[in-house]
């Protein structure tokens, strides 16, 4: 399968403190690739490097086989679209206007949209089921609706790769599943490569083709969910007590956090199914 992204020995930093250290990976075309890891592990920074909103200190990054720095900003915007974690809340545009603006990299300097631009915007809004909101102002939408509109905006950009920074954060359970199903549909029906940052390990296990676990700017493990989400790896990475078991839904892991009140004196976590080991009592 052809590679969408190939990264070799990436190094990057914020204000002289190194955040990403020697990160190498590749993402296949049409893959659902999820970045997980504790806070400050460099996930969002990596996403910003992939969207070229943050400069790379060293290393090579190829997009569709071509070094990223050979692309102009407009050319890159025709390949990669970003759904950021937070967007200005006081956006004065309607849903329709906002989605249509995503055609900018494909329009002339004045941004005068043509029929096919409007058609793309309508398709994107239908795909994300926000077509009933088209004339609503952005500041009148709920969190879930806003997120779907921003995904519609990214789809309307007609990219090959879509980057999402914690798209399910601050959403209720139903909306989380809806957004993840939408990403799955996007990958299956449109053949897009989806790269997502997530703090929700269980959603990552259910939807990701491959996961990349980061800690302090380094890759801890990269592979299929079953390879990455092992008790030892997660416990060492997150440094907190947890249980890793098989999900009742299928052949993938389910991770359960273990609060202090559920931990017995013999350092075994208690659950309905039985007990699980807790490694280091000093950390509890």
């Amino acid at each position: 399968m052809k590679s969408s992204i190939t990264a070799k020995s990436l190094h990057a930093s914020y204000d002289s403190s190194s955040v990403l250290k020697n990160v190498s990976f590749s993402v296949e075309k049409g893959e659902f690739f999820i970045l997980i890891g504790p806070n400050g592990s460099g996930k969002t920074m990596l996403l910003r490097i992939l969207s070229r909103t943050l400069p790379l200190e060293s290393g090579t990054l190829d997009i569709e086989g071509i070094p990223m720095d050979r692309y102009s900003r407009r050319a890159l915007a025709r390949i990669i679209a970003l759904v950021p974690q937070s967007v200005p809340e006081d956006l004065p545009f309607t849903v329709r206007e906002l989605v249509l603006m995503a055609r900018s990299p494909r329009m002339g300097l004045l941004g005068l949209e043509r029929d096919h631009d409007i058609r793309h915007a309508e398709e994107a809004m239908a795909f994300t089921q926000v077509e009933n909101l088209t004339e609503r102002k952005m500041d009148q939408l709920s969190g879930g609706e806003r997120q779907r509109v921003f995904i519609a905006r990214a789809i309307c950009q007609e990219p090959e790769i879509i980057l999402l920074d914690e798209p399910t954060a601050a959403l209720d359970l139903a909306h989380q599943v809806r957004i993840m199903d939408l990403m799955e549909k996007l990958r299956e029906e449109k053949g897009l490569t989806v790269i997502m940052v997530s703090h929700d390990i269980n959603l990552a296990a259910m939807y990701g083709n491959r996961l990349m676990l980061l800690k302090k700017g380094r890759i801890v493990k990269l592979g299929r969910p079953a390879e990455v989400l092992t008790f030892e790896t997660l416990e060492e990475t997150y440094e907190c007590p947890l249980l890793v078991g098989e999900s009742p839904l299928g052949d993938f892991q389910q991770v359960t956090l273990v609060p202090k009140k559920f931990i017995r004196e013999d350092l075994q976590a208690v659950s309905k199914q039985g007990t699980g080991p807790i490694n280091d009592p000093k950390r509890i």
Binding site: S72, P84, F93, M101, S104
Partner: peptide, 21 residues
């Protein structure tokens, strides 16, 4: 006037504007 569409993109925040070219 030639940059008026870019000014629209600025309202979405600098990061998002960059990712739109």
């Amino acid at each position: 006037f030639c940059l008026s569409n870019t000014m629209n993109l600025f309202l979405m925040g600098r990061e998002l504007a960059q990712t739109m070219g």
